[in-house]
Design a protein around this nucleic acid. Structure first.
Lengths: 165, 165
DNA sequence: CTTCGTGCAAAACCTTTGCATTAAA
DNA sequence: TTTAATGCAAAGGTTTTGCACGAAG
């Protein structure tokens, strides 16, 4: 799905998380370890429910409850390890933030496909605009909505199923 | 809140809505008339619940039920009269689309303030990117998150209350 | 030991829907 | 008179929370 390369990072996400927990006087539990492993095991975008299902499917029986997943998603976001990309249906979609280059998305309104792209100019423009307003940018989110190549050509294409059991 | 001028339009929002309804064989009811009047009575951003409250507060007793509000919000969006700007908390935030120039937002993560800005370059860049992917853009949404001027200077500032009754 | 973390079930929330009634055209 | 629109209450779906129990440090 992505044609971007993951950047090389000095510290693994798990390590980064551990550091974050330390600064907050929180503990690295069995659940948090499983959770971060699962979250960073694939570079695809994901939502809370998909994570629940992935964790239910694990062969080693290491489960993490739904509530804990929600709690830790929020926490990983605070730690700067993941970020919300967009909404899909009525769910928040997340993606890796740490160890992954800044990028934005083209989102097909028909099939729901997300196409990543990277453009240096956009951040520069934003910096300029922000300066004019005395605003300090910490990050941005840019989604262009429309029709992807496929859906332009075949107007009868179907939306992707999101929750195949 | 905004320093952008509304553009002069040939047709009023209500008129535009009426045209849209006609094409869909839908009816201009008392409720829809009240609804669109209320929606376009102010250029501020708003969410569904704020609209419910504004309509409850009306002196003339012209009420519109919550379900109808949700139904018509969706419809005004389809008609291209309003659009979703962002999420605030767990609600969708809307703003006028028709009769209002294209713009994007700087969003203060502390006080929640939305600063509008307009930049031609961004759309051009997006068009270029889209072309490379065979993607047809119909619109975009760009939010830069960070700290506004005020919150940079006074780190103890409070978030705005969103639902003062 | 003491505090934090977890799972469960229930709650909270926003949003959507079914249905009987009312009202456009 | 026909078909769409409305309000109400109930349902849906996601996310959050209270609480008792278990575990990390």
């Amino acid at each position: 799905m992505s044609n971007l390369e993951a950047v090389t990072v000095a510290v693994s996400p798990a390590e980064k998380y551990r550091e974050y927990l330390a600064t907050q006087n929180l503990r690295m539990t069995r659940e948090r370890a499983i959770f971060i492993e699962e979250v960073f095991s694939s570079h695809e975008h994901f939502d809370a429910d998909q994570l629940v299902q992935r964790l239910e499917r694990r062969k080693d029986g290491k489960r993490v409850s739904r509530s804990t997943i929600y709690r830790h998603l929020k926490q990983l976001e605070e730690a700067g390890l993941i970020r919300k990309v967009a909404r899909q249906g009525d769910r928040d979609l997340y993606e890796h933030d740490y160890g992954y280059p800044q990028h934005d998305h083209l989102i097909c309104k028909k099939c729901g496909d997300l196409i990543e792209f990277h453009n240096e100019e956009i951040s520069k423009i934003l910096e300029t605009v922000a300066r004019e307003h005395g605003f300090r940018i910490e990050g941005h989110r840019l989604e262009a909505h429309g029709l992807c190549d496929n859906c332009c050509k075949r107007p009868d294409s179907r939306p992707k199923k999101m929750n195949l059991i």
